[in-house]
C-alpha cells in the first residue's frame, strides 16, 4: 500500500501522548524499537535515554501531526454522532504544541511557578 509507512507513523504518533517508554509502545521490544526508529526517521519523535529507560518523545512536528489528526477525528465524530472531543482535551493539545516538549503534567504545575519565582534574578 502506498503511504503504508506514513500511516503506521501517524498511528503510533497518535498513541504517544507527549512521550512514552518503549514498553508502553509495545510489549515486544523488537517491535517497539522498530516503531521508535520509524518515528525518528520521519522526524516525528526522538529517542532519549533516562538511565536504563529509553523514551520516545514527540518532536514539534510529531505534536503537529498528532494535533491535526485529532482535529480530523473530531470532525468525523461530529458528523457521525454530533458528539465531540471535549474542549479541555483540545486546549490541552494546543498547549502541548505550543510548549513543544513540555510534558502535559508539567503544564500549569504550581511548583514550576514557585521555582520560577525563586530563581529570578
Amino acid at each position: 500500500m502506498v503511504y503504508s509507512k506514513e500511516l503506521a507513523a501517524i498511528y503510533w504518533t497518535m498513541k504517544i501522548d507527549g512521550y512514552a517508554k518503549f514498553s508502553d509502545i509495545n510489549r515486544n521490544s523488537k517491535r517497539a524499537r522498530k516503531v521508535a526508529r520509524l518515528l525518528e526517521e520521519m522526524g516525528l519523535a526522538q529517542i532519549e535515554s533516562l538511565g536504563k529507560v529509553k523514551l520516545v518523545r514527540l518532536t514539534a512536528k510529531g505534536h503537529r501531526v498528532r494535533w491535526r489528526m485529532l482535529e480530523l477525528l473530531r470532525d468525523i465524530s461530529e458528523v457521525q454522532t454530533t458528539s465531540n472531543i471535549s474542549a479541555t482535551s483540545d486546549d490541552h493539545l494546543e498547549t502541548q504544541t505550543q510548549q513543544n516538549f513540555m510534558p502535559t503534567w508539567l503544564y500549569g504545575n504550581p511548583w514550576l511557578q514557585v521555582i520560577g519565582e525563586r530563581g529570578k534574578a
Binding site: N100, F101, M102, L106, L112, I115, G116, G119, A121
Partner: peptide
C-alpha cells in the same frame, strides 16, 4: 534544567 525553568529565571 528544563527550558521552562530557565525561561522563568533569565
Amino acid at each position: 534544567l528544563r527550558r521552562e525553568e530557565l525561561e522563568q529565571w533569565v
